[in-house]
């Protein structure tokens, strides 16, 4: 598995991967932080909060530092989903999967090593996104008169670390979904399209029109809830456990298909 892990990093260091995998999430994190701070409302009693805006009071809380990033955690997750789906499906569409299987015929080790390398990459990307988002927040906040003392308190640091962990875990969940789509569908375009459509559109329609309680049980909804550290509909503990079950089930199914299917 270490060989597969190490081998994957040669591909992850490609310029395109850095641009889309790191740059994509970084761009969203940056934009979200700038928008959150620049559009924050000082006195919501005079200027009622409109969609996407929060008050200075909320921003000045210990959790205020990463408010923007957790708000767009779904987008960061979608980037992870695309990265994983593309990384697996492209091996099939390019014909390189056969080369890999000749050098590492133990398929479970190959898939696990590749997946872990992508998880590490996403972990680094999330940390980088949060670091950049925090730096930008610290730069912009004083200019708008937002007090940042709570951000550096022990509670603030703890909230920051927890938010980083939550966004990372949610991204791994999205990534697992992408990996499964990549292995099953074998075409990057089809795999990314199907997985994104499922998370963005299909689950939304199901929850909105068919199964209102679906936001407690559908994977995409739970990944999003986990990224926010739990929601009013789905507690943190429920989200974490259910996401873990989903990840294990999806991983087991993907491994079983990968092991049995002809390359």
């Amino acid at each position: 598995m270490l060989g597969a892990y190490s081998s994957e990093w040669v591909k992850l260091r490609r310029r395109a991967m850095l641009l889309w995998g790191l740059g994509g999430g970084l761009f969203f994190a940056l934009i979200a932080t700038i928008f959150t701070i620049e559009r924050a409302v000082k006195n919501p009693t005079l200027f009622p909060l409109r969609r996407g805006r929060i008050s200075f009071f909320e921003l000045e809380q210990p959790t205020g530092l990463v408010h923007g990033v957790t708000d767009i955690s779904t987008l960061i997750g979608i980037v992870a989903l695309c990265l994983f789906a593309g990384a697996f499906a492209t091996e099939y569409s390019q014909g390189t999967m056969r080369n890999l299987l000749v050098r590492e015929p133990r398929r479970i080790q190959l898939l696990s090593g590749k997946f872990l390398a992508l998880v590490t990459f996403i972990g680094l990307a999330v940390v980088l996104e949060i670091v950049v988002a925090c730096a930008v927040a610290f730069i912009l906040a004083p200019g708008r008169g937002i007090t940042t003392s709570a951000w550096t308190s022990s509670t603030g640091i703890n909230d920051l670390l927890q938010a980083t962990l939550h966004v990372f875990l949610a991204s791994v969940g999205y990534g697992m979904l992408g990996a499964a789509a990549g292995v099953l569908l074998r075409s990057p375009g089809v795999a990314i399209g199907a997985a994104v459509a499922y998370v963005v559109a299909i689950e939304g329609i199901v929850v909105g029109a068919i199964w209102s309680n679906g936001d407690r049980w559908l994977p995409g909804q739970l990944f999003s809830a986990l990224a926010h550290g739990g929601t009013s509909d789905s507690s943190y503990h429920h989200s974490l456990v259910t996401v873990a079950v989903y990840v294990v089930l999806i991983a087991a199914g993907t491994l079983a298909v990968f092991r049995r299917r002809d390359a």
Binding site: V10, K11, R14, Q94, G95, T96, N99, L100
Partner: peptide, 15 residues
């Protein structure tokens, strides 16, 4: 079959 945006040397390094 190789990774087009990797050099020949890097492609072999993958293996």
């Amino acid at each position: 079959s190789f990774y087009p945006t990797l050099s020949g040397r890097r492609n072999l390094e993958v293996l």
